[in-house]
Structures are given as structure tokens and as C-alpha cells.
Design a protein around this nucleic acid. Structure first.
Length: 257
DNA sequence: ATGGCGTCAACATGACGA
């Protein structure tokens, strides 16, 4: 059995108590964190070590930064897409228990007419190439993180208001479809076709209490793993605590032999 | 139409996020 989760914590410094509490309750084997907003030297390795997790980190001051906590050894660590020089720390690949685990913080994109949107699309093209290359070497692969893309209108609280905007725009959705075309499966949709289930809610306007959100945090898996998937769920409880991240953790469970 | 909320770096307020 493998329990693996993803959570954009929006500052690990601020959210450390929530992360420690959630690890104790949810007991994942692996937790992919995004937006840790700290450098490697500031990472609280000891506090995770004390509860049985080792950490691999690609940190960055102020913005971005990803880390993967794991109960099992992590090898073959990669922190950049090949041939893509990027000071922004958004990628962390490792092999854990024979599974290639790719932790991602996909760029936000700001708005569809911005430079940052072009960066997002270019970044997603590099991701596609990297996945294609990795899939040739690994039949068991999990790609998880904050994708900053809602796959379809079921994943959007108000599709009319959001139509054409960044996070739901056609070109981003096509990029995500490109991963599906490579054989990667959105594990959440193996278990429910319900609409209005979200992983992110705006801090403003009490969005969590009105369930005004988006499903933008995902756990994709290759077919070899998808057929062993037992669940994929979003845990809203941490989002309802005081001083929360604006994202909730997503956790999937796989049967392994 | 704008800001709405939170974090960071810094010490005022702008950048950034989604």
C-alpha cells in the first residue's frame, strides 16, 4: 500500500504546525509540498525526521519552492527539466519504492494576455517532453502537485464567470489533456464524477464557506498504477482551520505488491 | 471597476498568487 499526497502550503514557515498535524492524522507515506517559500538551509528537516519522514528539497526564498517528504528512501533526484534553465524552483523528481514521483508547482500564469501566461505554456511544453522521456524509463509514475489548471467545468464553481480566464483557458486545458494523451490518468476522476469538488478556495470573501473554489491540485498516475488505485480524496478540513493555506491536501492510495 | 486576503521582505507598501 502506498498513500501519497500533495499540498500547496503557501509558506511552510507559517503552515508547519498544520502540516505536522495533518501528517499525524492522514499518515501518508509521501507528501509533496509546494510554495514552501524558503531556502534549503531554512527547511525544518529535524521536525519531519522526528516523525519518520525524510525530506528532499528544492527551496527558494519568498516565492515557489517544492519539497517531498517520504517515509522511504528517495533516489535519482532531479530538480530541473532538461534543457530548461529556470531560477524558479517548481520541479522535484525522485524514485521512491520503485515509483517515479514528480512533484510540480505549475506556474500560475497571471492572465491570458500576460508574459507569465506565455511562461506557463512554455513550462507545460517542457513538462510534456519530460514526462514523455520519463515514461520510457518508468512504467510506474505519479505526477502530482499544484497544476494551476482546472481540467473541466465540473472543477469550477462558476464556469460562466471563469470562462476564458487563466486556470481554465483552452490552451492550458489542452496542455493538461496532452498528459492524458501520454497515458497519464487523473486519479480523482477514477472515483467520482461529481462536480463542485475543489482543492483551492480564495482567501477573500469567505470563499471556503460558500464552496467557491477550483480543483487545480491533482494526482496523475500511469495506467500501471491507476489500475491499482484505491482512492483519491480532497481533505477540506485543514482549509477550515485558523490561518490556513488557500489549498487543501489531496491524497491517493495505491495497492502495491 | 476595484478590491476583496495572505505572505514576503522590510518597515511602507508593492509583488505575487489563483
Amino acid at each position: 500500500m502506498l498513500r501519497i499526497a500533495t499540498w500547496n502550503v503557501n509558506s511552510l514557515r507559517v503552515r508547519l504546525p498544520h502540516v505536522l498535524d495533518w501528517l499525524a492524522l492522514a499518515k501518508p507515506d509521501v507528501l509533496a509540498l509546494q510554495e514552501i517559500k524558503m531556502q534549503d538551509e531554512q527547511f525544518p528537516y529535524e521536525q519531519f525526521q522526528q516523525i519518520g519522514y525524510q525530506a528532499i528539497v528544492s527551496g527558494q526564498k519568498t516565492y515557489n519552492g517544492v519539497a517531498t517528504l517520504t517515509r522511504f528512501a528517495a533516489t535519482d533526484i532531479v530538480k530541473d527539466f532538461p534543457d530548461f534553465v529556470d531560477p524558479q524552483r517548481r520541479v522535484l523528481a525522485a524514485t521512491i519504492s520503485g515509483i517515479r514521483v514528480l512533484n510540480l508547482y505549475v506556474p500560475n500564469g497571471e492572465s491570458v494576455d500576460s508574459e507569465k501566461y506565455q511562461y506557463k505554456l512554455a513550462w507545460l511544453a517542457k513538462l510534456h517532453n519530460y514526462c514523455q522521456q520519463q515514461l520510457q524509463q518508468h512504467d510506474k509514475m505519479i505526477i502530482l502537485g499544484d497544476f494551476n489548471i482546472a481540467p473541466d467545468d465540473r472543477d469550477v464553481h462558476d464556469p460562466t464567470a471563469w470562462a476564458g480566464h487563466v486556470l481554465v483557458s483552452e490552451r492550458e486545458r489542452q496542455a493538461l489533456q496532452g498528459l492524458t494523451d501520454l497515458g497519464l490518468v487523473d486519479t480523482f476522476r477514477l472515483f467520482t464524477q461529481d462536480d463542485k469538488i475543489f482543492s483551492w478556495w480564495d482567501y477573500r470573501g469567505g470563499a471556503i464557506w460558500k464552496n467557491h473554489g477550483l480543483r487545480i491540485d491533482h494526482i496523475f498516475a500511469t495506467q500501471a498504477l491507476a489500475e491499482r488505485a484505491e482512492s483519491c480524496e480532497i481533505d477540506k478540513k485543514p482549509r477550515k482551520r485558523k490561518r490556513p493555506s488557500d489549498h487543501a491536501p489531496v491524497i491517493a492510495q495505491f495497492r502495491l505488491d
